[in-house]
């Protein structure tokens, strides 16, 4: 066991360079600055006891990213177990339908898509949003995502398909 102060210093040196990237991913996952900060904070709290282990990891960036995803997934599962978590899902569904039924004929301009992209992500339920972020924005394969979620790749594929369909509808693509 290291001196507490030494451990804190090592932890700081190891983690500080990765915080901007972790925050960026957390923001995409959660859709808000506050939630992103909370998620990264929670991750750091969980990682501190692993300071020794992290010193031996060669590619710490990807390792941290996976840890962040896993934490997000765990949080999702906690929310899903609460009854109000379900209610949120239904509300999102209604909003999606409303938002996409304005003018289905007209195809959106790229600037409009850009402008509405974050809103579009936010109306997805968090599980679908995370699959979209992992696969489309960050380039994880479906197999890798399935491993992180401990779910069949087929399930992830279905979620991705539905999420993309919703995004496109919302964005009028």
């Amino acid at each position: 066991m290291k001196r507490p102060t030494a451990q804190a210093e090592i932890f700081e040196a190891l983690l500080t360079p990765h915080i901007p990237a972790l925050y960026k991913t957390a923001y995409r996952l959660t859709g808000s600055g506050d939630k992103a900060e909370d998620l990264v904070q929670e991750l750091l709290v969980k990682l501190y006891p692993k300071t020794d282990e992290m010193q031996t990891i060669e590619a710490l960036g990807p390792w941290l990213k996976k840890a962040l995803y896993r934490l997000f997934v765990d949080e999702l599962r906690k929310i899903a177990r609460r009854p109000e978590g379900r209610l949120g899902g239904f509300q999102e569904e209604i909003e999606t339908v409303k938002a996409s039924s304005d003018n289905p004929e007209k195809m959106a301009e790229i600037a409009q898509i850009r402008e509405k992209l974050q809103d579009a992500l936010n109306i997805l339920d968090p599980q679908h949003r995370s699959v979209v972020v992992m696969h489309l924005a960050e380039g994880y394969t479906l197999k890798e995502i399935a491993a992180i979620y401990n779910a069949p790749a087929e399930t992830i594929k279905t979620q991705l398909r539905r999420a993309k369909a919703r995004l496109k509808k919302y964005l009028k693509m």
Partner: peptide, 22 residues
């Protein structure tokens, strides 16, 4: 568009504060 989507910066002292809190 998702890959290039801009993400706002965290608050200035976030990294230091988060480490300290952890």
């Amino acid at each position: 568009e998702l890959r290039e989507m801009p993400v706002p910066e965290p608050r200035a002292d976030f990294a230091a504060r988060a480490i300290q809190n952890a």
